[in-house]
Design a protein around this nucleic acid. Structure first.
Length: 289
DNA sequence: GCCTTATGTTCAC
DNA sequence: TGAACCTAAGGCT
């Protein structure tokens, strides 16, 4: 159940475990069996994340043979394109002989580490060109601050957003604009900047956009490091405020996400909720008037 | 055990 | 706009 930070730490961990090594690839559940066969035994080149999309790039077979899957004139499809959707999970663990529980779509192993993918929205074999195409359709990713191509995208996105009559709450969920931002980060970044969710792009100052982007970068980098979403400032943590830590399945400390009816940590107003873009949106009517 | 919900996206109407 | 899809966990009976 991921926002962009999950895919980025998964890419990091997959690279640490497998980059440059030949890996066994299988699909115990069977749905990806043909793809797994085409990749089994190949060298794992690298994993790459863009927004909520994860790409696993494979290279040659260990004996140096180039390719067995390419048919005449067709480029080889040697990239696994994964999107976890709402409920997908990808986990890494030490490789033991015991069978994994549940329905495993894709399994990678080098004999030491085992990666297992459950319930993804997509798990497809694609070519280099298809990967480029997938990335071209995505917006700017707050977790690629050093990437010049991403910086280009950000300039375009900023122009689009500031010209739009759509609300910020709607635009923040649009992966063609903000790649990797999901329902938690949208609610929390709006709260942290004191922005009403219905504020339109046209109504936004250029500097406010920059602050919002910078906040997304910081929050999501923290999410990658911690493996969970924490958005509260130090003075509003449970320890600082003498309240009990949040018990929620996403695990982090937040201001408004899934806190409808509870008092705001800052002004004690009851947190509101309504459905927007088909998802539950949470905000504080006091702090985000 | 059954029902609801979930950090998401696509497709049909 | 609503349904469908993929799976697991928590709340309910």
């Amino acid at each position: 159940m991921p926002e962009g930070h999950v895919l980025h730490y998964l890419a990091r961990d997959l690279n640490a475990a497998f980059a440059g090594k030949p890996v066994q690839v299988s699909s115990p559940q069977g749905v990806f069996a043909a793809g797994a066969r085409a990749l089994d035994g190949r060298r794992f080149s690298r994993a790459e994340a863009w927004g909520k999309h994860l790409f696993l790039l494979f290279g040659a077979t260990p004996d140096g043979s180039t390719d067995g899957t390419a048919s005449a004139g067709q480029p080889p499809a040697r990239i696994v394109h994964i999107h976890l959707g709402l409920i997908g999970k990808l986990g890494l663990q030490p490789h033991t002989e015991s069978l994994l529980p549940g329905k495993v779509r894709l399994q990678l192993s080098d004999g030491h580490t085992l990666a297992h993918l459950h319930g993804p929205q997509w798990c497809r074999l694609i070519t280099d060109a298809e990967m480029d195409h997938a990335i071209a359709r995505l917006g700017a990713d707050p977790l690629r601050p050093e990437d010049p191509f991403n910086q280009e995208k950000l300039n375009t996105v900023k122009t689009k957003v500031l010209r739009s009559r759509r609300s910020l709450a709607s635009q923040l969920m649009d992966q063609k604009l903000f790649a990797g931002v999901g329902n938690i980060y949208r609610a929390e970044v709006l709260f942290r900047l004191g922005l009403n969710p219905d504020t339109t792009g046209k109504g936004l100052a250029s500097e406010t956009f920059d602050l919002m982007w910078q906040d997304l970068v910081e929050l999501m980098q923290r999410g990658v490091a911690a493996g969970r979403i924490d958005t509260v400032h130090p003075e509003h943590t449970p320890e600082a405020m003498g309240r009990s830590p949040r018990k929620d399945d996403h695990g982090g400390e937040v201001y408004v996400y899934r806190r409808a009816g509870q008092p705001c940590h800052v002004c004690a107003t009851q947190i509101s909720a309504r459905v927007m873009e088909g998802r539950n949106l949470f905000w504080c009517p006091g702090c985000q008037a």
